[in-house]
Amino acid sequence: MFGVIDVDQSPLVLIWEVTQACGLACRHCRAAAVPRRHPEELDTEEAKALLDDAAEFGDGQLVVLSGGDPLMREDLPELVRYGTDRGLRMAVTPSGTRSLTRERIAELADAGMARMAVSLDGATRESHDAFRGEESYADTIAAAEAAREHGIPVQVNTTVCADTVEELPAIRELVGEVGVVLWSVFFLVRVGRGGVLTPISPVRAEGIMEWLHDVDAEEPFGVKTTEAPFYRRVGLQREDGGREGSRRRAGVRAGCGFAFVSHTGEVYPSGFLPLSAGNVRESSIVDVYRESALFRSLRNPDGFTGKCGACEFRHVCGGSRSRAYAETGDPAGSDPLCPYVPEGYDGPLPARIAD
């Protein structure tokens, strides 16, 4: 999908939270979004300077404009066009509100939007809207259809937690009907409003990883996981029967192939790992990503602790650094969602995050 990228030099995905303002107040929102824009958001000129710096990662760098709801910024089409002109692939993740009209989608498509991602956390209006605590299902489906009409590839993001896990097979069917190119399945990290939700158990998560590999093989759309890199470990075990090739594939995780810029310019390894390595108002995003001690440490799985540090799959998985930080306060610790215990490991195991 991305070609060969040296993740020590460039992220595969650069997320920029253009605003935390949003008309929704979803129960799982990482950003704990609010109705109004923050007065210290990056302004248009600062935003363009960030995109100029991002272009130094190389032609075709993927930049995802996220939020909050990025549509709360009047200059969003201008930023999409500017980034596209600088050789960036500009994707947008709008909220499913009535502001996401066909006219707004057409304007973004004309500006060069390369992909649009929407969230579906239930297979029906009732289940989706109940989970999000807002009426957004109908607007989300309509927006996905409008994007496809304009030739924009659509991605669907789905949160996996105790409230949604039973819906996954039905959501799979809906994703196929919508005609998306990618289903991104996000395994809950308890930050922001999501801190009150209940994650699934590690054993349940392992089973879902197996199922998702089957889905990926059977469906025309791609499947990826977010904050669950042991999906790659499961895939390797299925292919190789265990340990062969355990260093064969590099993966994306917080700080390694992934970076996040907040609405006020703070640079985090992930939006779910809110440790700042610098601010784009003071330093280039390129320098922060490549040279900061935090990012460099997260790209060195040999420095991880516990069973993640001992795991033979650490170079292709590495565990969710965000979940390790959220649950233990240590971004180098073990991912408590992964049930795998390396052979011969007799050290401490992370506390279970769910029964």
Rank of each mutant, 00 (worst) to 15 (best):
A217V: 03
E166I: 08
A147R: 00
F230C: 06
Y137A: 01
V165H: 05
V178A: 08
Q9R: 14
V215Y: 01
S246L: 01
A106R: 15
L108R: 05
A332N: 06
R190I: 05
G60P: 03
G303M: 00
T124S: 14
A293Q: 09
G96R: 03
E239L: 00
F272V: 10
G58S: 02
S334P: 07
P336I: 01
A25V: 07
A49E: 14
G68P: 03
I15Y: 08
A117E: 10
E173V: 13
G271Y: 13
I171A: 09
P199S: 12
K307P: 02
F131Q: 01
A254G: 05
R352G: 12
I285T: 00
C22K: 14
C26W: 07
T97N: 01
M72Q: 10
V13S: 10
F187Y: 15
G207K: 11
E78Q: 07
S99H: 12
G195A: 07
R247I: 06
V4Y: 13
V165M: 14
G133Q: 03
T164F: 09
F272R: 12
F304P: 00
I200A: 03
D110V: 00
V341C: 03
V63R: 02
A144P: 03
E103N: 03
I5N: 00
D59I: 03
V181G: 15
V286K: 04
E46Q: 13
A250D: 08
R193H: 13
E40L: 13
P269D: 12
D69Y: 05
D139V: 08
I152L: 15
G60C: 15
R172W: 06
A111C: 07
F2D: 14
G96P: 08
G207L: 11
P339T: 05
K224Y: 10
V154A: 12
F258H: 02
A47W: 09
R73W: 02
D139I: 01
L120E: 04
R296N: 10
L71F: 07
R104Y: 01
F57Q: 07
L24V: 03
G242A: 11
P94E: 04
